[in-house]
Design a protein around this nucleic acid. Structure first.
Length: 303
DNA sequence: ACCCAGGGAAAGT
DNA sequence: ACTTTCCATGGG
């Protein structure tokens, strides 16, 4: 087992692992110890999180926690460069925040979660997990990903236990709709199976290089991917930091705080809210607001 | 029993 | 193009 530590004081900005991984962005990390949400006394939470990744097509396990001013990790590989990329450790949060509009809700959201970063997850896992996210609670989306890993992923031994890497497109496409329904995916089962097949058949998933709106349009080629899920894939795995997924929470936010941005359809409302949130990093700001409101932060404001 | 959950596909105007 | 309707499942 390899291990290491990244000194957080060496980063350009603050970092907070717990809010980053528990803000509904990533379903590809999971908490080692299941339930205990009570022990949040220490910055970063001090809890261990796990994820899997592939290096040269070989599956690897990474375990990380924030502890005593450092991001500590244990892994089957040298995880430092991957953690840096996946957790966007080089982002300059002050510069990003400075692009956000002067607005009470947004200031409160940023102030409430210092060190919250966007994630930069692998595209395929992001595609599948956000197909699963339709009309589903966060905890169940995570459970679905665990089931998918266990059922279809390559086993990896790490620290005396067996983990499962997230399946490749080939591994998942080889599954049947019935097998996926057995994992309680419901009506999303055929979407997942067909989208995995589309990836193996060459439909482009890494659409980086295209202008934002064209990239979003291209992703809706996948089954179970509409504009909202496409925006999630762009924001959380393909480095389109301007993407603002118009989910139920953000639509409610628009209605309450930015009513002029409601243009009746996705494309135009997206343009308006993206502009209202500062353009280039609108998706970053959206993620703070989403997490803030979902944790009840709007109750004291809306009065 | 009823409602909702980070929506989208299919059918109907 | 725009608007319903239906979709599986588990938790409150």
């Amino acid at each position: 087992m390899e291990q290491g530590r990244i000194e957080l004081s060496s980063l350009p900005s603050a970092f907070d692992l717990q809010s980053t991984l528990e803000s509904g962005q990533s379903y590809l990390w999971w908490r080692e110890d299941g339930e205990d949400y009570a022990d949040e006394t220490q910055h970063g939470g001090s809890k261990w999180y796990l994820t899997t990744t592939r290096v040269s097509d070989e599956p690897a396990v990474i375990r990380a926690r924030q502890h005593d001013g450092g991001l500590e990790w244990q892994s089957t590989i040298d995880a430092e460069p991957i953690l840096s990329r996946r957790l966007r450790l080089d982002d300059d949060l002050d510069a990003i925040r400075s692009t956000a509009p002067d607005d009470e809700l947004i200031e409160r959201a940023y102030d409430s979660y210092p060190g919250l970063r966007l994630v930069n997850d692998p595209p395929f896992g992001t595609l599948i997990s956000f197909i699963c996210s339709a009309q589903m609670r966060v905890s169940r989306i995570q459970e679905m990903q665990q089931s998918i890993r266990t059922e279809f992923g390559t086993p990896v031994s790490f620290d005396g236990s067996t983990y499962h890497a997230y399946p490749t497109p080939e591994q998942l496409a080889a599954g049947t709709e019935a097998e996926l329904r057995d994992l309680s995916l419901g009506y999303r089962a055929p979407y997942v199976q067909r989208s995995a097949e589309l990836v193996t058949d060459g439909t482009p998933l890494d659409v980086r290089g295209n202008p934002y709106e064209e990239a979003r349009e291209a992703l809706t080629e996948f089954v179970g991917v509409g504009d909202k899920v496409a925006d999630c894939i762009l924001l959380f795995s393909l480095n389109y930091l301007e993407a603002v997924p118009l989910d139920t929470w953000i639509r409610q936010t628009i209605e309450e705080y930015f009513p002029k941005c409601d243009r009746g359809n996705y494309t135009e409302t997206s343009r308006a809210i993206r502009d209202a949130l500062g353009g280039e990093y609108a998706g970053y700001t959206q993620t703070y607001v989403f997490h803030f409101l979902r944790n009840g932060g709007g109750d004291e404001l809306s009065g």
